[in-house]
């Protein structure tokens, strides 16, 4: 027994993780089968909550929110991978001041999402916000729009703001991957007469695919959990007229009551969370599988 004493050192992490991370996930699944406002007795209703959400009175709201998450994911992916690669390749030229630029690019990532939301909320204010004043000042007054008040513009605006905060991370990760590529390989290609464009497209880019894949998977998982940025810029209702409502804000209204919530219920809320979980779960499993394989190979 004495020999296994080291296992005690594993215990605090396992206990905390099990009680406050793992158990709540399962518990949430269990709750989704009950009708329960949060206090008092629970009433088992089988798949009643799922019916209400997927085909019943909650369905229009749920699918609208889920669709917004999908749009959010697709555009965030485009706005992180494309400019991310572009700027990473430019930084790979190794110009002077690269270190300095890296710090600048990464900085917005360190800001709290709500702070970014509030800041851009002020900058995008239709009357006094800097963005519209800038357009007017340079004679592009027709571009001065109520960015956060227009049902067609609000969601794209939030997506761009989110991309503004996050881009630096992708640039730096892709750059690190480019730098990590074996120099001999690119040198050999160069000797064989490959142009820089060919080296970038045919040698470097394929090597970046695994990292693009894993960062995209994480992006998928996180976009189905967005909440803060919508909350800070459009409130719990995901306004205007629900045009920015996402699963996170819908869930918040159902489970923790925001103003004007159609229904307050822990059971119903747990069902929304379980559905979000079902959406991200396959990607999560795949991600952990890849990470584990890499860990094993590293051993």
């Amino acid at each position: 027994m004495r020999k296994k004493a080291y296992l005690l050192m594993l215990l605090p992490a396992l206990l905390l993780y099990s009680l406050f991370v793992a158990y709540p996930f399962f518990s949430s699944l269990g709750l989704s089968f009950y009708d329960w406002p949060g206090i008092g007795p629970k009433k088992f209703i089988g798949f009643g909550n799922y019916r209400n959400i997927l085909t019943g009175f909650m369905a229009p709201e749920f699918f609208r929110a889920a669709w917004h998450n999908v749009i959010f994911f697709i555009w965030s992916l485009v706005l992180s991978v494309v400019p991310g690669l572009f700027f990473a390749f430019l930084l790979a030229a190794g110009i002077k001041g690269t270190k300095f630029l890296k710090v600048i690019y990464f900085f917005p990532n360190t800001l709290a999402i709500v702070i970014v939301g509030f800041l851009w909320g002020l900058l995008l204010n239709p009357q006094w916000g800097l963005v519209n004043q800038l357009f007017k000042a340079v004679g592009l007054g027709f571009l001065a729009k109520p960015w956060l008040g227009d049902t067609k513009l609000a969601l794209p605006t939030i997506i761009v703001v989110t991309a503004w905060r996050g881009l630096g991370f992708y640039i730096l990760v892709y750059l690190a991957a480019i730098i990590g590529i074996d120099r001999e390989m690119t040198e050999a290609a160069r000797i064989d007469g490959a142009t820089e464009m060919q080296i970038a497209g045919r040698i470097i880019l394929p090597h970046l695919m695994p990292i693009i894949a894993t960062t995209s998977m994480l992006k998928f998982i996180w976009t189905f959990n967005i909440f803060d940025i919508v909350y800070a810029m459009e409130g719990t209702q995901g306004g205007p007229a629900g045009s920015t409502d996402v699963l996170g804000t819908l869930f918040y209204r159902i489970a923790f009551g925001g103003l004007g919530s159609s229904q307050v219920g822990m059971g119903l809320g747990a069902t929304v969370v379980t559905l979000i979980f079902l959406i991200v779960f396959p990607v999560s499993v795949f991600y952990v599988f890849i990470i584990e394989k890499r860990v094993e190979r590293g051993e």
């Binding site: 993780y17 996930f25 949430s28 998982i221 959990n225 969370v273 979980f277 991600y287």
Partner: peptide, 14 residues
């Protein structure tokens, strides 16, 4: 490792 891909906020109710 599973915790790497499970956002804790999904478990907020429990």
């Amino acid at each position: 490792l599973a915790g790497l891909a499970l956002p804790t906020r999904l478990a907020i109710i429990p």
